[in-house]
Design a protein around this nucleic acid. Sequence first.
DNA 1: TAAGCTTCGTAAACCGCTTTACCTGCCAGG
DNA 2: CCTGGCAGGTAAAGCGGTTTACGAAGCTTA
Lengths: 336, 336
Amino acid sequence: MATLSDVAAAAGVSPTTVSRYLNNNIALPASTRERIDAAIQQLDYRPNLLAKRLSTGRAEAIGLVTPDIGNPFFAQLAAVVEAQAERYGYAVYMTSTHGDRAREIEAIRRMRDRHVDGLILMSNRPDDGSLARLLGEDDKVVLMDEDVPGVGLSRVFVENEVGAYRATQHLIAAGHRHIALIGGPPGLMSVRERLAGYERAMAEAGFAVQEGDVMLHDYSRSFGRAATETILAQARTPSAIFACSDYLAVGVLQALQNAGLSVPLDMSLVGFDDMPFAEMVNPPLTTVRQPVAEMGRMAVDQLMALLNGIAAAPLTRLPVDLVVRRSVAPFHSRSI
Amino acid sequence: MATLSDVAAAAGVSPTTVSRYLNNNIALPASTRERIDAAIQQLDYRPNLLAKRLSTGRAEAIGLVTPDIGNPFFAQLAAVVEAQAERYGYAVYMTSTHGDRAREIEAIRRMRDRHVDGLILMSNRPDDGSLARLLGEDDKVVLMDEDVPGVGLSRVFVENEVGAYRATQHLIAAGHRHIALIGGPPGLMSVRERLAGYERAMAEAGFAVQEGDVMLHDYSRSFGRAATETILAQARTPSAIFACSDYLAVGVLQALQNAGLSVPLDMSLVGFDDMPFAEMVNPPLTTVRQPVAEMGRMAVDQLMALLNGIAAAPLTRLPVDLVVRRSVAPFHSRSI
DNA sequence: TAAGCTTCGTAAACCGCTTTACCTGCCAGG
DNA sequence: CCTGGCAGGTAAAGCGGTTTACGAAGCTTA
């Protein structure tokens, strides 16, 4: 493999000259430039990135920490992040934590080890403070989707409260007045905010939220099923459910189907996320769309700003949209 | 940030000693070891990977080239690859090509630039020869899922032919005798093989495959819809469809629904892949499961073997399974 | 014609680690 | 007492770039 020195020798100049030429750091006469270009061409020279990085101290790579890259939501986000990072000439190094604190720590370590210049971090579990402590020291980190309270980092979130408010309003507008909420881990920002949006809509409409109407546990399909079964076993069942994620909503759908109930005839349902499968399930799911592309782009932009010493926005809130499909029907007394 | 020299100075030894100690390259008396350990601890020393790599020439990272990390199938594969690579202490750089040859080239470049030590490559378009030419020079590459003909690389594929054979047999066993196949890009290995499996099953059963029963174009949902519409418009419609991917199958499902037809009552359907959404659609899809976890693990293992100078298996075929759900019903004359 | 300014470069230190020689002192064996 | 071997290291040359500081010509200009 040809090195910079080889090129320099072939072109009859010093390595310094070639390096500076390649980095637009020197003005050279056409003749010299041509000699260097020719040498590069002929030797098929490609700079050794490792050496370059060691020299400059920049890895020209960012880390993306996701709970699970196998989850379509995070996968989509990852795809966008990767595409956007590429536009800046940055590579993306991905880590899935699988909810494991040790892996989060490892990813942050890697950053410290100059493996990557910065991090986009998505957590999906309430932090007990250890992650915040770990992050306390660094900047060069952007939090996406979910918060880690108590750290002074740049954040890119969506309008969770507004999304939930709209979803609930949509159900209320269809005549529902007893609406249950099924959500993820209590303590998680997205859950708190979505719950708040739901409560605001219910309060504004003058409807009570009662004991047993709110079930929080995690964002899984299985909890969606379990919660729905619990709800159906109650004396007073709601006529609609707002599930705080599409995974939950699919679980709800399955439990309802198992119970021989029809969506939306017997129960209306709204999800959150607009995952790719939301329009493939039956009935296609009415849900709140998160602007995945925007989020990913924004997070990269913020991180790049940080890396270039520009102050990033402390908090960006991206708007969400209600996507109306076919899982909500007008309330009618047959609903049970 | 503390360097190796700092540690050496603090421990009262030479950098060489510390380096060799850390790399298990020297036998030291306990007292010296303790001094070094103490210095490392106290200075919170972490080796600079960039420097280490420049020195050793190993990046300790592999590249994963996928068509689109946003696609759940590739995302799952990526998750597994990442997990397995981590067990070897390797990082994973991911690139999504979006079917773009230039990006594939770029990814291969990166490898040559010592960014990564090796590559796991998934393509999803028939190669016109350019990719093969590009790869011709390297080893240290493992092909996964889809072939690039004409290169002498290690390959990890699934039993496409057998999978398709079983899927078709399953339909035949249910009494169907006119079965259509909807598939991806002609020329792609997986398509050829799945088609072959279908044809074998049909031939063994003594059923003819007629003009218009096989429709190949790409693995998209929209083609699944379009192909189904074409099929329904034909004079003689089949009573069952074998879709060569779950994406296609979902498209089929939608077209059928739009046409007011029920799956499986009016039309039976089998997919391929067992994507996460396969069991969420309605009806849950009977499909051929690809052993995603096995594939990812195997590809990493093969690549690691290659990197350690061990000859990797030229071709690994992983078995597939038919997952029976609810999209297939016995043939009855009402089928149209 | 000397001073000064361009133009076109270069020498050499440095990034932080690895690795290949070697070196030194001490002790056992002959 | 000499020699050889072993324990316990070290010096220094890379790896392949970047970057700071410093010229030497050649051309103006006063």
